[in-house]
């Protein structure tokens, strides 16, 4: 489950931020996980609850935003919304899609004290 190493990465970022921006506790983490990314939000939530114990993010609230998948349809020459990889273009039914959004995996904001 690679979500565990990703969660460790999140905690490292929080520790680094705490040092450079001078805070001692994280109350809320806003995390974007695109719907086309390789990450399961529920697995991240589970791992975060387990691994944040004893860290500056213990009991922090994790707010996960899931930006929709966006793709450029080469046949329609326009941007379309896709709910998962392998699905056809909702307009023409083709598969000539180039994913342009929905692959995010990033921390956007922190509420700290």
């Amino acid at each position: 489950m690679h979500e565990m190493s990703l969660t460790n990465g999140i905690l490292r970022i929080l520790e680094d931020q705490a040092r450079t921006r001078n805070f001692s506790r994280v109350r809320t983490v806003w995390l974007e996980i695109g719907t086309l990314s390789h990450v399961d939000p529920e697995a991240i939530r589970f791992c975060f609850e387990s691994t944040s114990k004893g860290t500056i993010a213990e009991e922090a609230c994790l707010v996960i935003l899931e930006p929709a998948g966006q793709a450029w349809c080469l046949d329609c020459s326009q941007s379309v919304t896709v709910t998962r990889r392998g699905d056809p273009c909702p307009i023409c039914g083709g598969f000539m899609l180039h994913v342009t959004g929905g692959e995010e995996l990033r921390i956007t904001e922190l509420e700290v004290e």
């Binding site: 990703l6 990465g9 931020q17 995996l105 990033r106 904001e109 700290v112």
Partner: peptide, 14 residues
């Protein structure tokens, strides 16, 4: 004042 925007990719270090 306690909200920090950081916009950091989780895989940035990798």
């Amino acid at each position: 004042a306690r909200i920090l925007r950081i916009e950091t990719d989780v895989l940035a270090e990798n």
